[in-house]
Amino acid sequence: MAKKEMKIRAWMDGDRAMVKAIIFHPMETGMRKDKQSGKKIPAHFIKEITCKHGDKTVLTCMWGTAVSKNPFISFRFKGAKSGDKVSINWVDNQGNTETGVANIR
């Protein structure tokens, strides 16, 4: 799978930080069948995401297979300032993982 890196945008809106991110992931439910071979496509989806502001966890997401392909995350939090680091880490059911980092604008 040609892998694209996740995209994160983070910026300040008054006293709160806004974060938006997109992860490139197939999010297979395990229920779909391959049209040509008729075989089931194995489940491949992100289970857990940890969103951090510096070292502090702001948001933990537990996802099931119902989350769409190339999932989108959006959240807001307080107590940040421009220039702070935001990181997002995900782990999928096959043990793959990726961490993305962005500075708050």
């Binding site: 502090k56 702001v58 119902a66 769409s68 989108f72 959006s74 959240f75």
Partner: peptide, 19 residues
């Protein structure tokens, strides 16, 4: 579909796309 666990700093706001 999903569960989001929020810390004290996080605002009560989330956005996602589901099937």
């Amino acid at each position: 579909a999903a569960q989001y666990l929020l810390s004290k700093d996080a605002e009560g706001y989330i956005n996602l796309r589901v099937k």
